[in-house]
């Protein structure tokens, strides 16, 4: 390196014309830098078709006008059709006036067959691989409520097993939901009928709600959900069981696509023992009101102060 060049390099004040050699050197650095950058970014090529401009600029659920909502539902239907080959009926069913849903579960009756778990997956279009489940059934030794003693992965030929009771846990639709409080973008909120919902098109996937939930009720789509075409439930709703994308949260929503139309949740309908009772707590004649008035019900982790709408009781 000539003396002049050396000075050129060392003296930060020198911003004068650069030598040919220096120019070539910098050119080489720049070119290899850009090449390396392009190489590093190359996996992004696989993303090309997945970006959806309409979804990207879409407003928050609560700010969509009915007309805009119509367009959104059409877009979702088209996407589902393209991906799964079925024409879905995508709706946005609103909560009914004078309705507040509650759930009660009779622990004396539950036999731990997990039919509710699978009926829920079939109804709500969860990913099958990896399988996302909203209901977790704990096999508990009799004589304790300490969930650390529960078995989450029991795998036996015949249930129930002697000396155990079974405790299904799903979203408790709390009156004071910690998950709603922590969401930085209001992507999850409580509806007037007591159901905490998620706008899957608004969620940024920070998983703060998952950390906040004291009942471990929330699930995250760590990869792109995969559902076999023949398994799709075409009866879909914006805030509940339409297919989700990777990177967003989901959870039990009391099957609002059914319950807001007067039907019962899938987990209740499938239960062979009649352990589950669901209904409108504001209707004094409902079965759920009877149970809450007459059975000694309790909630999980009452000390968390979340006021769940999911009650347990023993009947015997």
């Amino acid at each position: 390196m000539s003396e002049e060049n050396k000075e050129n390099n060392d003296n930060p004040l020198n911003t004068g014309p650069i030598s040919r050699r220096d120019f070539l050197k910098r050119g080489a650095v720049l070119t290899s830098g850009i090449t390396a950058m392009v190489a590093a970014l190359s996996p992004l090529k696989q993303l090309e078709d997945t970006f959806d401009m309409e979804e990207f600029v879409q407003k928050h659920y609560k700010e969509l006008t009915p007309k805009e909502m119509e367009g959104v539902l059409k877009r979702i239907a088209k996407k589902v059709e393209k991906k799964y080959g079925t024409t879905p009926n995508v709706q946005d069913i609103k909560p009914q006036e004078g309705v507040e849903f509650s759930y009660a579960l009779n622990l004396s009756r539950c036999i731990g067959c997990r039919r509710c778990v699978h009926a829920c997956v079939d109804e709500n279009n969860q990913s099958r691989s990896p399988e996302v489940q909203y209901i977790r059934v704990l096999k508990m030794p009799q004589g304790t409520m300490d969930m650390e003693k529960g078995d989450h992965h029991y795998n036996v030929k015949k249930v129930p097993e002697e000396g155990h009771f079974y405790m299904p846990v799903q979203c408790h639709q709390c009156e004071k939901p910690p998950c709603v409080k922590v969401c930085p973008v209001e992507a999850t909120w409580q509806e007037p009928d007591g159901i905490t919902v998620i706008d899957y098109d608004w969620c940024i996937g920070c998983r703060y709600c998952e950390a906040a939930c004291p009942y471990w009720a929330r699930r995250f789509n760590f990869s792109e959900p995969s559902i076999p075409k023949e398994k799709i439930n075409p009866n879909m709703n914006y805030l509940s069981n339409r297919p989700r994308s990777k990177g967003v949260m989901e959870k039990c929503h009391f099957c609002l696509q059914r319950t807001r139309e007067g039907k019962l949740p899938a987990c209740l309908e499938v239960c062979p023992t009649g352990s589950r009772t669901f209904g409108n707590i504001l209707d004094p004649e409902s079965e759920i009101s009877y149970i809450l008035k007459n059975k000694r019900v309790f909630v999980l982790k009452e000390e968390a102060g979340t006021l769940p709408r999911f009650f347990y009781y023993f009947d015997k």
């Binding site: 970006f51 990207f56 928050h60 700010e63 409080k181 922590v182 969401c183 930085p184 973008v185 209001e186 992507a187 608004w202 969620c203 940024i204 996937g205 920070c206 998983r207 703060y208 995250f220 789509n221 994308s245 990777k246 990177g247 967003v248 949260m249």
Partner: peptide, 23 residues
């Protein structure tokens, strides 16, 4: 850490929907 970094703009006050001061 975000599942949907493309929706980053939801976090921008006034443009997105910023759950401040609760979250």
């Amino acid at each position: 850490d975000l599942g949907r970094p493309d929706r980053f703009w939801h976090l921008i006050p006034f443009i997105g929907k910023f759950n401040w001061p609760i979250s």
